[in-house]
Design a protein around this nucleic acid. Structure first.
Length: 316
DNA sequence: AATCCATTCAACCGCTCTAGC
DNA sequence: TGCTAGAGCGGTTGAATGGAT
């Protein structure tokens, strides 16, 4: 038996929205102080569209806080950095770019940024340099996990360090800029908590992994990195409020949930690979010895210097 | 001027997650 | 505990557009 359709599509209109339909939708939401139930909205508003289509039109186009126009260089850099950490989790990335939608960012990535990374000799999925040994790495799942864990930890620290150093030479104007995004995160309670994890609060994370590993749908990164994603994004789950605005749970509420989960979950729920990954990551010399990164950072990080004022420099 | 091809982006589809019962 | 409906998310599609030939 097939899955039932999300709504009765008979007689419903598809395709591009007309200005009249836009007007009806906006007027309805404004008049009612929110969209309410998307499923019932089309009938109540008098639209021959399914609720899903209305939601998409509102969240991606009609919301008053949508920022139109081309992405700035700073926004593009931020998207690349966040993608390196979050992967294809467009909604989480959109959380960090006010006024930009997940759909817009996804399109930007697929049409522009992915090509730039490929052009620069980087794998757009892993952000790692494409090398001849990549086949060998693929052959070993555990090794891949190990590399990703090392890579992401190192890069996070490096981003923060580079941002900090750059801010010393280039004092940020009042209000800051997007370029010191990682510095702000690193110095915030989010970053502090991340550092705490590495200093020994392992139990919390280890248990949280067993939860997230079953819920993540990304599949391209280790369960632990899903937790890092969550920390960096400041959310354990994203959603939208009545106005369609993206909302993230605070990091505190997230850690509270993890603490609660800590009481109820058992350690044997951890898969071997996850366990090894966590162990590896906590053994990783993040706080003390990052010299390997300073020596050879170009091998690992997407060089910020390659992003010039007006364009990306393609070394090929 | 006509045709072809590549690119962009709005919109749809189908899957997953979650809250409520 | 299991089921269902609703909402959200990411992947994909296809119409529109612009540039090249």
């Amino acid at each position: 038996m097939g899955r039932s359709p999300c709504c009765d599509k008979r007689g419903l209109k598809k395709g591009p929205w007309t200005p009249e339909e836009d007007e009806i939708l906006v007027e309805y939401i404004n008049k009612n102080g929110g969209h309410g139930s998307w499923r019932s909205l089309p009938n109540l508003a008098g639209l021959l569209r399914c609720g899903k289509s209305c939601r998409l039109r509102w969240t991606n186009y009609l919301r008053p806080d949508i920022k139109r126009g081309p992405f700035t260089l700073e926004e593009e850099k931020l998207v690349i950095q966040l993608h390196g950490i979050l992967g294809n989790r467009w909604a989480a990335i959109a959380c960090q770019l006010p006024g930009r939608t997940d759909n817009e960012i996804k399109n930007l990535w697929n049409t522009h940024l992915k090509k730039h990374l490929i052009c620069m000799g980087l794998d757009p999925q892993t952000h790692e340099p494409v090398t001849s040994c990549s086949t060998t790495i693929k052959a070993s799942a555990s090794l891949t996990t190990r590399h990703i864990a090392q890579w992401e930890s190192a890069r996070l620290e490096a981003e923060a360090r580079l941002s900090r150093e750059s801010s010393l030479f280039n004092p940020v104007p009042v209000g800051g800029s997007d370029s010191d995004y990682f510095l702000r995160i690193w110095n915030s309670e989010v970053g502090e908590s991340f550092r705490k994890f590495n200093m020994g609060e392992k139990t919390l994370c280890q248990n949280s992994v067993s939860q997230s590993s079953s819920s993540t749908k990304c599949g391209s990164i280790s369960p632990f990195m899903t937790e890092i994603d969550t920390i960096l994004a400041g959310s354990s789950a994203t959603g939208r409020n009545q106005n369609g605005d993206i909302e993230c749970k605070s990091f505190k509420s997230y850690t509270d949930e993890m603490m609660a989960a800590n009481d109820s979950s058992s350690s044997d729920e951890l898969e071997d690979s996850s366990d090894n990954t966590i162990k590896l990551l906590f053994d990783f010399p993040i706080n003390n010895d990052m010299s390997f990164l300073e020596e050879d950072i170009d091998k690992y990080a997407m060089p910020p210097a390659m992003l010039t004022e007006n364009s990306f420099i393609c070394p090929l």
